[in-house]
């Protein structure tokens, strides 16, 4: 893929529960084989602050729920060849998008959490990234190349997709993936 012998892989954690990353780690001893072929250049489990250039594969967990994540996703897209939506939150919105049924869900969800349910110092935080009106799956903001649904996607499925991509094949998803 590049002059670099190892494929540069990144994993990103947006609005999700980190369960998909847990499932990624659940590949267990297969991670050792994988580590021969890939280099993890950015991940919540590898302390890198800035998303690097020239990434071959990026696995993204979680929906886009605030403006910082939207900027992050656009940044990732511009520096990545193959972008994969990992898990139901990234593919459909899932639990993160439960608030979407409210018309002004960005305001109402904060009112509910920080004012109605608070019995001490009720105030909506202001020095954090602004929520988007609706939580969105990734493909509504940027082009996504592959989708791996599941809550979380099974470790076998993540391994299948990665090994197929590393072998230069297109993973076939019929009968393999399910939501939830």
């Amino acid at each position: 893929m590049t002059q670099n012998p190892k494929v540069r892989v990144a994993t990103v954690w947006l609005s999700g529960c980190s369960g998909c990353h847990m499932s990624f780690l659940d590949q267990d001893e297969r991670l050792v084989d994988l580590a021969q072929k890939i280099q993890l250049v950015y991940s919540p489990i590898a302390d890198v602050k800035i998303f690097p250039e020239n990434v071959d594969v990026a696995l993204i967990e979680g929906a886009i729920a605030n403006d910082e994540q939207l900027r992050m996703l656009e940044n990732v897209r511009s520096r990545t060849k193959i972008l994969i939506s990992l898990g139901d939150c990234a593919v459909t919105g899932n639990v993160t998008a439960l608030r979407n049924s409210w018309r002004h869900s960005d305001q109402e969800v904060l009112e509910r959490a920080y004012k109605e349910k608070s019995d001490l110092n009720a105030a909506i935080p202001t020095d954090v990234p602004k929520l988007l009106i609706k939580a969105r799956p990734l493909h509504e903001a940027v082009k996504v190349d592959f989708y791996v649904p599941g809550c979380p996607p099974h470790a076998d499925l993540i391994n299948y997709v990665l090994t197929e991509l590393l072998a230069g094949r297109t993973p076939k998803m019929e009968g393999k993936t399910k939501y939830g």
């Binding site: 639990v95 019929e174 393999k176 399910k178 939501y179």
Partner: peptide, 23 residues
């Protein structure tokens, strides 16, 4: 939203999506 649905894993719509590869 399958992950919070009572019929998760026993849903015909979910099964159909899986069978057809609606990822």
């Amino acid at each position: 939203i399958c992950s919070v649905c009572v019929a998760n894993d026993h849903c015909e719509l979910q099964a159909m999506a899986k069978e057809l590869g609606v990822e």
